[in-house]
Design a protein around this nucleic acid. Structure first.
Lengths: 145, 145
DNA sequence: CCTGTATGATTCACCCATGAACGAAATTCC
DNA sequence: GGAATTTCGTTCATGGGTGAATCATACAGG
């Protein structure tokens, strides 16, 4: 059976995708909430850990695929949490770099653990092949635009 | 090749999924923006069209998988756009029902057209089999929790 | 030099979403 | 009938996101 799959309605597929992603995000969000992080905050910490050095807010916004004004506020909150610090760039006085604090580095490590767990739970109902297919299809979806 | 797919990292898969959904949502959002709608507003109009009758805000919130306070504001904005109207329920004076206006019904029809187009464009890089697989995997993801 | 122009961050107004607190109305249970 | 409880919508504070406007600084070209 199922040799000739019926054409999939693009509208319902799109909304199904948004719904599923909403579900996944809610699960990560509630897991991270246990250590006072959000998906957005964890994302910023990850970028800083990856980079291995303080990053200008604009660069951070670009890597996070969001606008600069958003990063301003996100870093405001992260700074209030004492997880990052703003430092001035002497070589360009317009620029402000976000630097991880030791607490930020540590919180990111805890977050990475939690996200790994939560991710595993979310995709537990899929077998290895389905996960690989999903990854391939999502990547394809990102490449075309 | 690829007989034994490497295990997929759940963290990166989760973030890839959020990123792809963000992309899809942004495309729908920008398409709907041309007629002054958003994905959230279109969703509410759709629920009202489906139901074929005015719906209480609580019921609308439940069908949209969001909290009631959110629906209050969403209906505020839809009412400001003259696309829905609040009507009192004489049989339960606590209840407020949202009713489509003729403009709302018409705007929904335009939106449905636009979303269909945009959805088709978004998934254009996938073949029929991939779309069917994606749908199946997303459904599976939603069933397990 | 100095006058544009481009770029970095911020502020502001807005949209969407959540949860807690609240008042009003319906229900339940003496 | 009246007290306690539940349910409905709203309001408020907060978090996360966008785009437009603004200010300071850097970087041209004359």
């Amino acid at each position: 059976m199922n040799e000739i799959p019926a054409a999939v309605c693009p509208t319902s597929l799109a909304f199904q995708m948004l719904g599923a992603a909403h579900e996944v995000e809610a699960r990560l969000e509630s897991a991270l909430d246990r250590i006072g992080l959000s998906v957005a905050k964890f994302g910023v910490l990850s970028k800083l850990v990856e980079a291995g050095e303080p990053l200008a807010l604009g660069s951070l916004a670009e890597r996070s695929c969001c606008v600069r004004s958003n990063m301003t506020q996100l870093v405001d909150r992260l700074e209030a949490d004492r997880l990052v610090e703003r430092i001035n760039d002497p070589s360009d006085r317009r620029s402000v770099r976000a630097a991880l604090t030791p607490a930020g580095r540590e919180r990111h490590a805890e977050g990475a653990h939690i996200v790994e767990e939560a991710g595993r739970a979310v995709f537990a109902s899929l077998d290895d092949g389905e996960r690989a297919t999903l990854q391939r299809v999502l990547a394809q979806l990102g490449r075309s635009p």
